[in-house]
């Protein structure tokens, strides 16, 4: 059965085309592009909330997008136990909707960070099954507010439920800091309790094609399809 997916576009999204290409090239199935004002969502296996600056990041990153018309459908999609992936601004939107815990605050150095980062899997889930234990993935980040924060109670919850999907780590020859943006416990991506919703700051859709510097971003789609 072919894998169906969709990408939501908000005004100010700028990684929607990248996400569409990523899905088309790797899933080989039907990929829909849905405008934020739509009120229905086709039945698909995966929805991506892409990166960018939805609504110009006004008010708070992701805050305005979380009130868009399409969001009710996105929540329904997640409640139906289907996959939902928020990348970068998409992750911020998921925390604003409340589908994911915690919040993304400004990077520790208070500067935008656009560079390669390295991550590894923390706890196993359907988004990272194809990744080996201790395998280091090289994937670009590009964010101003990617510093994951939550209170101790939530952090314990995330750990106990094994909701931490990815954490930042050191690359073999890179002198990039281990924890690139100051996230609590170097968290790079988390899931909801049921583990069908993932939010992550790194951009796997910029690391999959042969001409990209790394192809590690393929592993996420491969995990979902396998």
């Amino acid at each position: 059965m072919s894998f169906k997916s969709a990408v939501i576009t908000f005004p100010g999204s700028n990684c929607d085309r990248d996400a569409l290409c990523y899905l088309k090239d790797l899933t080989k199935g039907k990929v829909h592009n849905i405008w934020h004002e739509e009120t229905s969502l086709p039945k698909v296996d995966l929805v991506i909330l892409p990166g960018g600056f939805s609504f110009g990041d006004y008010l708070r990153s992701g805050a305005m997008a979380s009130k868009s018309k399409i969001i009710d459908e996105v929540v329904k999609h997640a409640n139906d136990n289907r996959y939902l992936l928020g990348i970068c601004n998409g992750f911020q939107i998921l925390t604003e909707i409340g589908l994911l815990k915690g919040a993304l605050i400004r990077n520790k150095k208070l500067k935008f960070l656009g560079k390669n980062c390295f991550i590894k899997r923390k706890f196993k889930n359907n988004f990272n099954l194809s990744i080996k234990d201790n395998q280091t993935l090289q994937i670009p980040v590009a964010h101003n507010e990617g510093n994951f924060y939550c209170d101790t109670e939530t952090l314990n919850l995330l750990k106990n439920n094994e909701q931490i999907a990815f954490e930042y780590c050191k690359g073999e020859f890179s002198d990039t800091e281990e924890n690139i943006n100051g996230s609590i416990e170097a968290i790079a991506g988390i899931t909801n309790k049921k583990k069908n919703v993932l939010g992550m700051m790194p951009h796997p859709e910029r690391a999959y094609s042969d001409f990209h510097q790394s192809q590690d971003g393929r592993l996420i789609i491969e995990s979902l399809i396998s």
Partner: peptide, 16 residues
């Protein structure tokens, strides 16, 4: 790097 790490250089997915 201090300068260009503040720029997004990989958005649009076609950067080589």
């Amino acid at each position: 790097s201090w300068v260009f790490d503040q720029y997004d250089s990989t958005v649009m997915g076609d950067t080589i």
